[in-house]
Design a protein around this nucleic acid. Structure first.
Lengths: 257, 257
DNA sequence: GAGTATGCGCGAACGGTGTTCGCAAATCAA
DNA sequence: TTGATTTGCGAACACCGTTCGCGCATACTC
C-alpha cells in the first residue's frame, strides 16, 4: 500500500528527491553532463551509491529528469524575457536575472528580440545544461515521443514561437515564398500539425516552419559559441555577433511598417 | 636513437597506428564518441589494452586525433562539392559520393548552394563524427589555439568561406549594414584577423563576420536535425526545411543581378 | 496495541572502464 | 655479436553503474 501522501514518510522522500536533483545539477555544473557519476552524487549528499536506486531507476533515468528540468528552466527564462512571467512551469521559483537588453514591453519586435537574446543568455550562463539539452544525445537513448522531455521541449518551442504567432496574428509577419513552399510539400502540413495550435492559437503550417527555421538560426550561433568554437575569435563572448544576426533576422521577418 | 624511417620497424608502427585509427573510428560509428572505450578498441584490433599506450598518450589524445581527421574529412567533402577536388588534405583518398543536388560548376550561387548542402549531407551521413566535432566538448578539454584541431577546423572554414570570398571578389556579395557595423566594433577587426587572409586572398573583416554568421545559420539547422530534435516532425530527414533556409540565405546575400 | 507488510538505506559484490608499472621478447645501431 | 631501444603484455589500482540481500524503521490491518 502506498503511504499517505502527506505523511512524514512521503515528505522525507520528496525532500530527498529534491536534494538528489540539486546534487546532480551541481555535479553537472562542475564536471559536465557526460561525466555525471552516480557515486559522486551519492557522496555529495551523504548517501551510499546503492541508496540512490530507491529514488532513480538508473543513471539514464536521472539524466532524463535533469533534461526535463533544464528544458523547463529555459522555457521559464524565455517567458520572463517576453514579459509573461506568469505561465511559467513553477511560478514560485525566483525570477531569473536577465541582462538589461532583454525584457521589453513595447512592440512585437521588442518581444521577438527579447526572446532571441534570452535564448543566448540562458545558454551562455548555463553551458553544461545547454550541453545536456543540445549536445550529444545520451548514447543509445532516444526520447520517447510522448515522454516528458519532448513535452518540456514543446514549452521551449511555444515560448520561442509566441512573438512569431503574435506577429502573424497582427498580419505583420512576412514569410519568404520558399518557406510557404515547404509548408505545402507532401505530408509536411500533416506532420507539423503539433505546431498548429501553438500558444492555443490555430496557426497555418508555414508559421510552424518559420518557428523551426528561426530556432535553427538562433541555435546555430549559440551552439558554436557555447561549445567553444568561437572562443579563439571572441574570448569575451559573441554577443555582438549574435545581436547582429538577430537584427537581420528581425528585418527579414518583420519589415518596418 | 630513432629507427630508420623506412625500416620495417617504422613501417609496422605506421600501419598499426592506421589500424588503431580505423578501429577507433569504427567503434565511434557503432557506439558514439562519448562511449569510446580503449579496451574495446584494443580487443577489436587484437591487442592488449596496455599496448595501445605505445601509440597514444590517453583516451583524450586518441579523440583529438579522431577530431582532426573528422575535420579534414568534412573539409574534403566541402571542397569536392565546390568542385575543388584537388586541394584536399589527402588527394589520394576516394572521392565521396554526393547527392546529385550538390556539386555544381556554374555560377557562384551554385557553388554557395553546393557547399551549404554538402555541409548537411556530410553531417547526416556521419552523425557520430558530427557529434564528435560539434557536440559536448570533452569534459575539461580545451583545444590548444595552435593545436591541430583548430588548424583542421580552419580548413573547414576556408572551404565554407570560399564561395563567399569569390562573391565578394566579383562584387556580388551584399552585406547587411548590421554586419559591417559589427566588423567595425572595438577590437573585432583585430580579433578576426586570422580570417582576413581567407583562401590566400586579403578580405575585409566584414566578410569574415559574414562567414561566421553563415556558418551559424547552416550549423543550427543541421545540429538540431542530427541530434534528433526534429525527428518527431521530419522522421525522414529535414532536407526540404534545410533547402528552404539555404535559399532565403542565398537570396539575402547574393541578390539576383 | 500486536502483527505484518512495505519502504528505506547500506555493505558487498560483479563486470566494466582508463591508466600505470615492470618484465620479457623483438628489433635496431654499432 | 653486443648493447640500447622499442614493443607488447599481464597484473594491478582506482573508479564506474548496477544488483542483491540483509537489517531496520515506518505504516497499515486487525
Amino acid at each position: 500500500m502506498a503511504d499517505h501522501p502527506d505523511g512524514p514518510r512521503a515528505r522525507a522522500r520528496r525532500q530527498n528527491l529534491r536534494d538528489l536533483h540539486a546534487a546532480a545539477l551541481a555535479e553537472i555544473r562542475e564536471h559536465g553532463a557526460v561525466a555525471l557519476s552516480l557515486r559522486r552524487v551519492a557522496r555529495r549528499m551523504g548517501m551510499s551509491p546503492a541508496g540512490l536506486y530507491r529514488y532513480v531507476d538508473s543513471r539514464e533515468d536521472l539524466l532524463t529528469r535533469l533534461i526535463t528540468a533544464a528544458y523547463d528552466d529555459l522555457a521559464d527564462h524565455l517567458l520572463v524575457a517576453i514579459g509573461a512571467a506568469d505561465e511559467r512551469s513553477d511560478p514560485e521559483a525566483p525570477l531569473p536575472s536577465l541582462p538589461d537588453v532583454v525584457g521589453a514591453e513595447g512592440e512585437v519586435v521588442d518581444r521577438l528580440r527579447a526572446v532571441a537574446m534570452a535564448y543566448r543568455h540562458w545558454s551562455v550562463t548555463h553551458p553544461q545544461e545547454f550541453a545536456l539539452l543540445f549536445g550529444d544525445p545520451i548514447p543509445g537513448y532516444a526520447a520517447p515521443p510522448d515522454g516528458p522531455t519532448v513535452a518540456a521541449m514543446g514549452r521551449v518551442g511555444t515560448a520561442l514561437g509566441r512573438p512569431l504567432v503574435e506577429a502573424w496574428g497582427s498580419g505583420r509577419l512576412r514569410l519568404p515564398a520558399t518557406w510557404t513552399a515547404v509548408a505545402s510539400l507532401d505530408g509536411v502540413a500533416d506532420r507539423i500539425a503539433p505546431l498548429s495550435h501553438l500558444d492555443a492559437v490555430d496557426v497555418p503550417p508555414e508559421v510552424g516552419i518559420a518557428l523551426l527555421l528561426a530556432w535553427g538560426r538562433l541555435h546555430g550561433q549559440v551552439s558554436l559559441e557555447v561549445f567553444g568554437h568561437h572562443t579563439w575569435l571572441f574570448p569575451d563572448g559573441c554577443e555582438p555577433l549574435y545581436a547582429a544576426e538577430v537584427e537581420t533576422f528581425i528585418e527579414q521577418l518583420l519589415p518596418v511598417p
